[in-house]
Simulated assay, not measured.
Amino acid sequence: MLASPGGHPLNPSSVCARDPAADRDLRLLPKAHLHLHFTGSMRPGTLIELADKYGVHLPEALTGGRPPKLRATDERGWFRFQRLYDIARSCVRSPEDIQRLVREAAEEDVRDGSGWLEIQVDPTSYATTLGGLIPALEVILDAVRSAARDTGLGIRVVVAANRMKHPLDARTLARLAVRFADQGVVGFGLSNDERRGMARDFDRAFAIAREGGLLAAPHGGELTGPSSVRDCLDDLHASRIGHGVRAAEDPRLLRRLAERGVTCEVCPSSNVALGVYEKPEDVPLRTLYDAGVPMALGADDPLLFGSRLAAQYDLARRHHAFTDPELAELARQSVRGSAAPEDTKAKLLAGIEEWVVS
């Protein structure tokens, strides 16, 4: 069953009663998932088991069976979000934990119709327990290969720097990402609170990544306005933008994104859970779509936000009246914006056409 933005099960038969032809199962729609964070992809049950394994006390917000109430639009709210995320991350300590996390994330994606996943990770988060930066990334990439083999899902990695740390750390990560570009790393990102640090401070790190053949996919336009999206374009030469929804506030910026074909990795449930928008219908999906801005819907951090990939398409259907042909176009945009090989893209695009005419 699909999950609502709040994580509650949805009855597929009641999702789109206005038109029987629009009742196609969104889990059967082939799609690419381009915005999923490593720790945040964890199943709640897995977190509880790992916490018990390592004797980590979990706050009720992570054990209550419902997504925690978050509002990250102010410093205090973001701190609470980050604290919960850090507690969850502390429960992933061994190569076996990494293997389990990636395998389960892949299983969830396959269940939701994903044929390609680019999972985002900062290897420094696991370097201490796994023996250093290089061993940590090697463990992660090995887990990715195993999960891809076991589930049939195409999986690659986006190495993400933390904008709360020094830009020199980002350069180190960019060099590491390039070193493993032929072993499963396809992109370089920049995450955490976009209100901290200037994008231009990380320009050299992104230059290293681009020169090494990696796509640039920094976060921008979520907690701050259109200016952060422009900074990602101008200073980091982004080919994709993590989130990017606040670009909707600037028509000229929308035209620029559309003309350049820059894909925005839009995460509707995340936007609402963090207080960027009050209600699902406030997320500017229609504004971006009608402006011709390519989008790839993403789940961001299902552990904290309570819904996975197919639920994002369901949100577009229920709250923004996206028709099935329009949802299919969103799926196509996710595939086109991915780093998948051309034969994989062709297979997914063909599957989307089959879904539309079914």
Score class of each variant (00 low, 15 high):
V144M: 06
I98L: 11
R145Y: 05
V178W: 12
Q82T: 11
G77S: 10
P123L: 02
S146E: 12
G77H: 11
E108G: 04
R111Y: 14
H166F: 11
R93A: 00
D169R: 15
T172V: 15
R80F: 13
A170F: 07
L176Y: 09
S146Q: 14
A72H: 08
A170M: 07
G77A: 08
D86K: 14
D74M: 04
E96F: 03
T151N: 06
L101K: 02
V157M: 01
A170K: 03
F81N: 07
G115M: 05
V158A: 06
A177F: 03
R111I: 03
S90D: 14
A106Y: 13
T172A: 15
V102N: 05
F180R: 12
V158E: 00
K165G: 01
Q82C: 09
K69V: 14
D122Y: 00
P68E: 08
Y85W: 14
N162A: 04
K165H: 10
L168W: 12
L117H: 09
A161S: 14
W78H: 12
T151R: 09
T73H: 07
A148F: 05
E118G: 00
Q99W: 04
G184H: 11
K165Q: 15
I134L: 10
E104T: 06
D142G: 09
I119L: 09
A72E: 13
R175L: 04
D169T: 13
R179L: 15
R80V: 08
L173T: 09
I155D: 04
D97K: 09
A106T: 04
F180M: 13
R103P: 00
N162T: 06
L173R: 04
G113C: 02
A161H: 04
R179N: 04
F180S: 04
T128R: 15
A72Y: 07
A105M: 08
Q82D: 14
D74Q: 10
L84W: 07
A160L: 07
A147L: 09
L133K: 14
L84A: 04
E118N: 09
E138F: 04
L130R: 06
A106C: 11
R71T: 12
D142W: 04
S146H: 07
G65I: 10
E138A: 11
E118F: 06
